[in-house]
């Protein structure tokens, strides 16, 4: 169980939220819904350990998120170009996750990542190609929970459907818990097993 308990967070000034709680079980697909500017992306970052809440806690099966090393909650964001080292070839970026060669090869195959891309730098791929690489990296880190924050906004409809097919298959095979944010009601209806309205709580 991924649990956020009584989270308070703000960027100076008024806090974005106070005492916010959320629990996600393995196998669940929870969609977060809130108006623009509420702090959905910030909450995603808190859940994945990128930000520390000012009050409250984030735990996985009762244990807090590790401060170092592999995090059991992996975040896939909206801007893949911001989460890769621009001076690292993509093969090295993918290897960061620490998976073995067979697992990486399997993920590359599933996500259609070509061998040739691994020798390239991030700016030499399109946004959609880079996003697939980031998804492979997140899955290679053997997460228990996956946070998908507008992961397919920059993709055309066909690629979006393909990326989600891979994500859903992997989530089912590994019994992952999934937290997703999407601006598209149709996509949310298609993917989520539960919708949490943050503003209403």
């Amino acid at each position: 169980m991924l649990e956020a308990r009584d989270i308070t967070f703000g960027y100076g000034g008024r806090p974005l939220y106070e005492g916010l709680s959320l629990a996600v079980a393995p196998g669940e697909r929870v969609a977060l819904s809130a108006p623009s500017g509420f702090g959905k992306t910030t909450l995603c970052r808190i859940l994945a350990g990128y930000e520390r809440p000012q009050a409250g806690s984030v735990t996985v099966d009762g244990a807090p998120l590790p401060r170092r090393g592999r995090c059991p909650v992996q975040l896939i964001g909206q801007h893949p170009e911001h989460v890769v080292d621009p001076r690292l070839r993509l093969g090295a970026t993918l290897a960061e996750a620490g998976a073995d060669e067979d697992e990486l090869a399997r993920l590359r195959e599933a996500l259609g990542i070509r061998e040739a891309w691994l020798a390239r730098f991030p700016h030499e791929l399109s946004g959609g190609e880079l996003q697939r690489l980031c998804i492979a990296r997140a899955l290679a880190a053997r997460p228990r929970y996956l946070i998908a924050d507008e992961v397919s906004t920059m993709l055309d409809a066909l690629t979006q459907a393909r990326v989600w097919q891979v994500l859903l298959d992997e989530a089912a095979a590994r019994d992952l818990g999934l937290v997703l944010v999407s601006h598209s009601p149709a996509l949310t209806a298609r993917l989520a097993t539960r919708v949490v309205n943050l503003a209403g709580e």
Binding site: L158, A161, R162, W164, S184, A186, A189, R190
Partner: peptide
């Protein structure tokens, strides 16, 4: 491929 239709990956 649209989510409101089949969401088919083709």
């Amino acid at each position: 491929a649209l989510p409101e239709h089949d969401f088919a990956a083709g």
